[in-house]
Amino acid sequence: MHIQPVRFERSPQLHPMMTEEPYGIGTRVVVQGKRGPEVATVRGEAEPMPSTGRFGMILSVATTSDLSRWEELGREAEDLKWLLRARARARGLPVKIVAAEYTLDASLLTVSYSAEERIELSALIQDVRAHTRARINFAAVGPREQAMMIGALGACGRENCSSNHLQEFAPVSIRMARDQQLPLNPEKLSGPCGRLLCCLQFEHTQYLELLQDIPRKNAKVCVDSSGACGKVVKLHPLQGTVDIYTDAGLMTEIPASDLRPMKGEGKPEGGKDSRA
């Protein structure tokens, strides 16, 4: 028995599945997961079965009939999604229907929705029951999950990370933006989901390492080569330099290695909570 990762259509996350025989990367397969049988795509090489863990199962290669049925169910689910959106508007419900998905045997319909407050869904459940015999599961999703499922373009012009490759949503804080010396503009720091950009975390560790050798902002320093002294007003971690406003009223960019603390100020390098 082996373990092989597969990817479902609405998420970049890889899900390990048991399989008796390895499948080629890119193969469309039928898998038995938590919700039931679904079509997925193999996205990695097979590995030995671990001694612990609970996994779904790759049942078989998806046949032409399976793929045709999967596409047909996808169209039916899409129609139900728009039906529910119309009914929600008509009823004045503050809810967004994000997606609707059938399992391959059409026994379960999962409706993903987002809402800022708790709402009563019984009326919508009755609406959709008139059009399907499947069991119906309404699943609440957050803003990041919503952006992942719908897809969007990020500020970089490429598909947003949550839809493309992210395997989990790691915590992102405004401190990461401060450490990277980014302007604290909510419009520029927010992704399509309206939350802080996931990519702020990608290089944060490297910025923390670079900042260890740079004076903190507002530190009083002197330049070894010229003897001029002043206050640090801006940091350039990637260049290893800082802008200082000298006592003579000049603004100049100086390498951090050419700086020393002004007498009585202590070591120029600041702690992790002194970067503003």
Results as ranks from 00 to 15, higher is better:
Gln201Lys: 14
Gly142Asp: 05
Ala115Asn: 01
Gly194Asp: 04
Cys222Lys: 11
Pro255Tyr: 02
Ala86Pro: 10
Val242Pro: 06
Arg135Met: 08
Gly264Trp: 00
Gly74Met: 01
Ser162Ala: 15
Gln239Gly: 14
Ala100Lys: 01
Gly230Asn: 03
Leu121Gly: 07
Glu269Ser: 11
Ile58Gly: 10
Trp82Val: 13
Leu189Cys: 02
Arg175Gly: 12
Ala90Gln: 15
Ser51Glu: 14
Pro5Ile: 00
Glu72Phe: 07
Thr41Met: 12
Thr52Ala: 14
Ala46Lys: 05
Ala140Phe: 12
Leu189Pro: 00
Leu189Trp: 03
Gly151Tyr: 03
Pro48Thr: 09
Pro16Val: 01
Glu9Val: 09
Met149Pro: 10
Leu67Phe: 00
Val98Pro: 02
Ser112Glu: 13
Ala46Tyr: 02
Thr63Asp: 06
Glu117Phe: 08
Ala248Phe: 05
Arg133Lys: 15
Arg35Pro: 05
Leu83Ser: 09
Asn160Phe: 14
Leu189His: 02
Gln4His: 06
Met149Leu: 13
Ile214Thr: 01
Pro186Asn: 08
Pro192Asp: 09
Arg178Thr: 13
Lys220Met: 14
Leu210Glu: 12
Val223His: 05
Leu166Pro: 05
Arg135Thr: 06
Ile136Tyr: 06
Ala140His: 15
Glu168Asn: 15
Glu76Thr: 09
Leu238Phe: 03
Gly154Asn: 06
Pro22Trp: 07
Pro261Val: 01
Arg144Cys: 08
Thr252Cys: 04
Arg91Asp: 15
Pro16Glu: 05
Gly240Met: 05
Asp273Ala: 11
Gly74Asp: 03
Ile254Ser: 00
Ser65Phe: 11
Thr64His: 13
Val128Gly: 01
Arg175Val: 14
Arg54Ser: 10
Leu109His: 07
Thr19Leu: 04
His131Arg: 11
Gly266Asp: 04
Cys161Ser: 10
Gly26Pro: 00
Tyr207Leu: 07
Gly53Ser: 00
Gln180Met: 13
Pro22Ile: 02
Val39Glu: 02
Leu238Met: 12
Tyr102Ile: 01
Ala228Lys: 14
Gly24Ile: 08
His15Thr: 15
Ile214Cys: 01
Ala88Cys: 01
Ile97Asp: 04
Thr103Gln: 10
Gly36Cys: 02
Lys234Ala: 14
Arg89Cys: 08
Arg158Asn: 11
